[in-house]
Design a binder for these strands. Structure first.
Lengths: 209, 209
DNA sequence: TAGATTGTTAATCGATTAACAATC
DNA sequence: TAGATTGTTAATCGATTAACAATC
């Protein structure tokens, strides 16, 4: 997918919302959707949506709208969801297990192919048909199973070490749930999922209402 | 806490990061921290940090820096973390249970006082010392236990209904994990925690590297 | 054709960065 | 005092909104 000079971070963050809305529209049997209708469903202005989409190409038909299937395919392609990434979760606590059980992962093109933990009582158990392996085998298994995305759901204190091990084993993307500042090389992508930020801002808005 | 005309959304989103960094600094026994050091730890420019903080007051000492304890107390107060909000989680699936088990909630001033579910096999069980109640009793219990924050971890299709019930029972803040567009009245705050957005943008960055 | 809706350029708005005076 | 660091104003940068030509 060719992309013009520079896409704004805000635009990229909205793409998954477009994808989801298009999937819903598709499920409803809609053939065509306008930026107006899409905007209504997402509380985003239609101008914004058109602007975002045209940074990647001309997907619409003037006077008509966007073909749902076609646009969904394009957005999916832009997001790289067609790649079928192999993924591993490190840290099979409550959150790790919750993520392992998400059926949506597969629908979005992410294939959970390994689970890792350090605790002997967890190693060998099975979550959602995937067996938990010893963290010591991470390098070997990441290679073997061609794992490109690592999900970190260990306590903050171990997060950097886990990231380092995943990366040296070949992982190119890290989805980090540990509340810690992480360092990764330039050729590795990281997204920090800092859920308590959300709860704190909720509290802020409740106080300052 | 008095606040000037309008605080930028970006500023508010950074406050929880400041809070966390200050808590860490406090644990390390640091008395004073400069915007420079704070910035280094968070990968945020010191100018940005000073600008953010001064929208709420003058917390620093010129030529010296910020007193860690004092600034942490101020940021905590700004975020409303001193309020000790009572909180309920609706939907005790994997994610709901994972959140219920987070010890950090209490540390941040959020008190988990109720769990709700619809499934008979889940009702009556206990997660982290809190018993799961029948969703039918939500109105009654939200009143009784003075619950102000509701956490929604049910499937998308039920999320709006759950929100409506929580709100009519008196909840003023919603922390929503369901991937659905929600409608709430003006006097209710909502934060949507859309975790698959993060995974999708990770995929985007991996493809467009 | 007339009506609708996209794609794109220009105008506005908001957020970040730079610079520096104030002062500990 | 000299050095350090905040708080604040001005300049820059980036993102959103408005307007409208293109065209289905």
């Amino acid at each position: 997918m060719k992309v013009q000079a520079s896409i704004s971070k805000a635009t990229i963050d909205r793409l998954p919302l477009y994808f989801r809305a298009l999937r819903n529209a598709q499920e409803e049997g809609l053939d065509i959707i306008s930026s107006d209708e899409l905007g209504r469903r997402l509380s985003i202005t239609p101008e914004q949506i058109r602007k975002d989409l045209t940074s990647f190409g001309q997907f619409g038909k003037k006077g008509v709208g966007y073909y749902v299937n076609e646009l969904k395919k394009n957005v999916s392609n832009i997001l790289g969801l067609d790649n079928h990434w192999n993924m591993a979760i490190v840290g099979v606590g409550h959150l790790g297990a919750a993520l392992a059980n998400y059926q949506n992962l597969g629908m979005l093109g992410f294939q959970l192919v390994a689970l890792f933990d350090r605790k002997p009582e967890v190693i060998g158990t099975t979550v959602n048909h995937v067996q938990v392996e010893d963290m010591e085998r991470v390098s070997e298994i990441v290679h073997e199973r061609n794992i490109k995305i690592g999900v970190i759901t260990v306590p903050a204190a171990f997060a950097q070490d886990v990231a380092d091990r995943l990366i040296s084993a070949g992982v190119k993307g890290i989805w980090n749930f540990a509340p810690a500042k992480m360092c990764v090389p330039d050729d590795v992508c990281i997204v920090n999922e800092d859920i308590f930020t959300g709860l704190s801002t909720l509290s802020y808005h409740m106080v300052h209402m």
